[in-house]
């Protein structure tokens, strides 16, 4: 079973990375958005492979169901900038590539040097319910109750901010 899941992981990771690359390369903005959806879906499958079912579905619900829809709406609101006709590379692409590779190497180094990276994870108890544990942790005073409520305030701020910026005030409209 171990090798099978490894093969599946490699395929999914390749698809995810490849479509992430296509997001940047694609000339058409809508195509970019659709490649982004595939990338996000690949991440969801990776969550699923890690037995984090809740995160996998949440990834699809939030990122594909809401955020990518928002991105596509935003693209459609603009006026014909969808296909970029200019050159896709400027003279600095070598520098950008070098810095990206260095960042990636640094991240890999940080993760590998973390002692927890080499420890084999214990298999979870069959009766362990991740969602229930998450729910308990979210509201327990020793857990994340403050971030939980603050998340609500943050969402409220985001909502009000979005309305203020995107919506001109119409005093007579109710």
């Amino acid at each position: 079973m171990m090798t099978v899941s490894l093969i599946v992981f490699l395929i999914v990771a390749l698809i995810t990375l490849g479509s992430a690359l296509m997001v940047v390369i694609a000339r058409n903005l809508v195509h970019s958005a659709l490649w982004l959806v595939l990338t996000l879906f690949g991440v969801a499958i990776l969550f699923g492979l890690l037995q984090a079912g809740f995160l996998a579905v949440v990834q699809v619900v939030i990122y594909i169901g809401a955020i990518s829809i928002l991105i596509i709406f935003a693209i459609m609101l603009t006026r014909r900038i969808a296909s970029d006709t200019g050159p896709r590379f400027n003279e600095n692409w070598g520098w950008a590539l070098g810095i990206s590779l260095m960042m990636f190497a640094a991240l890999v180094w940080v993760i590998v040097s973390w002692p927890g990276f080499h420890v084999q994870a214990q298999p979870l108890d069959a009766r362990f319910e991740p969602v229930v544990e998450l729910g308990k942790a979210l509201v327990s005073p020793n857990g994340y109750v403050l971030p939980f409520e603050l998340a609500s305030v943050l969402l409220l701020a985001a909502l009000i901010g979005a309305i203020v910026i995107a919506w001109e005030r119409k005093p007579e409209g109710r």
Binding site: L77, L134, A166
Partner: peptide
């Protein structure tokens, strides 16, 4: 622009629901 605003409000509520589901289960 209305389409975009509704999508924004939807996004906020979508995230809210994801927070509430673990709460509802436990």
């Amino acid at each position: 622009v209305q389409y975009y605003i509704f999508a924004l409000i939807f996004l906020v509520f979508d995230i809210e629901m994801v927070f509430l589901y673990p709460w509802a289960v436990s």
